[in-house]
């Protein structure tokens, strides 16, 4: 008798559970159908136009278009220099196409030796979306991170868990930070303090000292060396609040695709331990359109180990 009652109870429970599952599943489906799309994805976002949804000032691109720069670098004002920085910001991005590349990073220490890794990166700058997947070393192949605007996830394939990180984090305990993989927006993050002129190798440069206007950037003060003719950044010194040199970045080779310029060789030297240096080198660059699903957590999980 008790057994029959138990079976009946289980049957009723199973029916109830089945109905409950259907209701729950239905609720989730309805909710998902109504949910607003996230910033990633072509053509979506609230701002409209090519910059929609990435949180930049509305006239960020437009104000730059017709700006007349002085012919003589000695005549540059602080505002001219800020517009020059803005021009380098805009030209470091691909607002009209996606971009993918393979980048190798080699970190050198005279005592500890040479460490190398290689990543595949995917960028959709109009949505401020970025995906990086480790290719080498083989033992860490598939690890990666996804960033869309200010949402950044790192994926740990061992625990199958996503975690948030910040743009300030140092990448791989090297002289490179996560922010170095983002499209440049120095003209938004910094204000010009002073400008001078100088020479860097074969190039005449305008040197601007800038101060951060928010605490989201990893370096409160920077000094930029910009070649004025083609408006490309050659060198950036990054300082602490006490003006101690923390890092120097050299951009020694560029690739130009249309209006965009990518620094394909970037050398970073630690300011506190000069023997510590890293070089980031781009290869296999493409502006071929990327599928939307590349900029999802699901894709990052699938391509990891």
């Amino acid at each position: 008798m008790n057994g029959a009652r138990a079976v009946t109870t289980k049957f009723v429970h199973a029916k109830l559970t089945g109905k409950l599952s259907l209701v729950l599943f239905g609720l989730v489906l309805v909710f998902s159908a109504r949910a607003q799309s996230a910033p990633a994805g072509g053509g979506h976002g609230g701002g409209g136009g090519p910059m929609g949804g990435i949180g930049l000032p509305l006239n960020f691109l437009q104000a730059d278009k017709d700006y007349k720069f002085p012919d003589d670098i000695a005549k540059y004002s602080a505002n001219d220099f800020l517009m020059l920085v803005r021009r380098t910001d805009i030209r470091s991005s691909f607002y009209n196409s996606d971009m993918s590349a393979t980048i190798s990073m080699v970190s050198v220490s005279p005592v500890r030796g040479t460490f190398a890794n290689k990543q595949q990166i995917y960028r959709r700058d109009k949505d401020d979306a970025f995906l990086m997947i480790m290719v080498e070393p083989e033992s860490r192949k598939g690890q990666g991170m996804l960033r869309v605007d200010n949402n950044m996830w790192r994926y740990d394939p061992t625990s199958r868990k996503f975690t948030h990180t910040t743009l300030k984090d140092t990448y791989e305990n090297s002289t490179v930070t996560n922010n170095d993989f983002r499209r440049w927006q120095r003209s938004i993050d910094y204000s010009v303090v002073s400008i001078t002129t100088g020479t860097l190798g074969n190039y005449k440069v305008i040197i601007g000292e800038l101060k951060a206007n928010n605490d989201e950037v990893p370096f409160p003060y920077i000094k930029m060396y910009i070649e004025a003719d083609r408006k490309i950044v050659l060198k950036v010194e990054e300082y602490s609040l006490s003006m101690k040199l923390l890092r120097t970045a050299y951009y020694t080779q560029y690739v130009q695709i249309g209006d965009s310029l990518i620094p394909t060789v970037q050398i970073f030297q630690d300011g506190l331990i000069p023997e510590k240096r890293s070089q980031v080198t781009y290869t296999d660059i493409s502006t071929k359109s990327l599928p939307d699903y590349y900029f999802t957590k699901e894709y990052l999980e699938r391509v990891s180990q």
Binding site: S104, T114, Y250, V255, I267
Partner: peptide, 23 residues
């Protein structure tokens, strides 16, 4: 792809080849 042993700015930016490659 390896950073130079010594950072020499004149060498980094003083070569005969243009630092910009157009694709």
């Amino acid at each position: 792809v390896t950073p130079p042993a010594v950072i020499d700015e004149n060498q980094l930016f003083g070569g005969s080849k243009d630092i910009v490659t157009v694709i």
